[in-house]
């Protein structure tokens, strides 16, 4: 049994991501605490005097979920922070310093702003991986360290690289039991931690899959000779999961061109229909994923 300790807010989580130039928070499902995790990171970095940059993939920080109307935690920003958000959702007051506009999202031009006065903000960032990459680069160019992305799994490949970290948020919305939630988290972490191909593996590569590695690919690979080296562009291109993924990894040497650095998990025991034991959940997710795991609201770490 893993030891579950008290850990204040995002303090313990901070220690795992302190050196990252960008941090993407991705969830195993909706309403698993992504924004709560983001908010904890924002607070702990800000308390240490960091100039953080903040953006999202899609829409975050609104009062209620735009899709299902469920209440959402808002993002409170402090002076000095850099925020990239669609101009259409940028609060008009208190006024921010607009430092750049770029690209476009479904809600119009993305504005990078420097916060001048404390306020609640809604954040709607670039909807594409390429747009996210550009925004993170610009946030960093304007002095953000780190850039924090309230993310989405299929777009975070833009952040692949040694200085970037990924935090996986999971919670009761992902499963009915502690074990089920842990399984889902472990599956996602395993996929995101797909190792990068070495130079030797690239040279000896048997098959390169440019698009998504789906069930049909997997079926074909199962029928092929064991031990073949198969390379995908990045871990987000792996569209199979669970046992199929595990079996495939045992059958072929599945590698990627650009790997991702998953550094931690966070948990949320609350779902709309049920509640899980907070301590048990933190321990189970940590055990299943091998990642340091935190409940930033309850102040738990495992």
């Amino acid at each position: 049994m893993l030891d579950v300790k008290a850990a204040t807010g995002g303090e313990a989580l901070y220690e795992t991501v302190a050196d990252a130039a960008s941090i993407a928070v991705v969830g195993t499902a909706k309403n698993v605490g992504k924004t709560v995790t983001t908010r904890a990171l924002v607070r702990t970095f800000t308390e240490r005097g960091a100039t953080i940059g903040l953006t999202s993939i899609g829409r975050d920080g609104e009062l209620a979920d735009a899709l299902d109307g469920a209440a959402k935690p808002r993002l409170f920003v402090r002076p000095g922070m850099l925020v990239a958000t669609a101009r259409e959702v940028l609060a008009r007051s208190p006024g921010c310093e607009i430092v750049e506009t770029l690209g476009a999202s479904a809600l119009g031009t993305i504005a990078i702003v420097r916060v001048l006065h404390a306020a609640y903000l809604e954040i709607a960032g670039a909807p594409t991986a390429a747009g996210l990459r550009a925004i993170v680069a610009r946030l960093r160019a304007h002095g953000a360290m780190p850039a924090i992305v309230d993310g989405a799994i299929d777009r975070i490949a833009a952040l692949a690289g040694g200085d970037d970290a990924i935090v996986v948020a999971t919670g009761a919305e992902s499963g009915a039991t502690v074990e089920a939630v842990a399984r889902v988290a472990a599956d996602l972490v395993a996929r995101l931690r797909l190792p990068a191909a070495t130079d030797d593996e690239r040279a000896a590569c048997d098959e390169r899959i440019d698009g998504a590695l789906d069930a049909l690919h997997a079926d074909r690979l199962f029928a092929s000779v064991a031990g073949r080296i198969v390379i995908v562009r990045d871990p987000t291109r792996v569209a199979i999961r669970g046992r199929t993924f595990a079996r495939l990894c045992a059958h072929v040497r599945l590698r990627c061109d650009r790997d991702l650095r998953v550094v931690a998990c966070t948990t949320s025991p609350l779902a709309r229909g049920h509640v899980l034991d907070a301590r048990a959940l933190v321990a189970a997710v940590a055990r299943a994923t091998g990642c340091p795991t935190f409940d930033v609201l309850a102040g738990l770490a495992a």
Binding site: A6, T8, G9, G10, R39, A40, R43, P73, A278, R279, D295, L297, A298, G299
Partner: peptide, 13 residues
């Protein structure tokens, strides 16, 4: 409580 809340919403075990 033994630990300090930080945000408007916080959890108490």
């Amino acid at each position: 409580l033994g630990s300090r809340p930080h945000d408007d919403e916080f959890v108490v075990l």
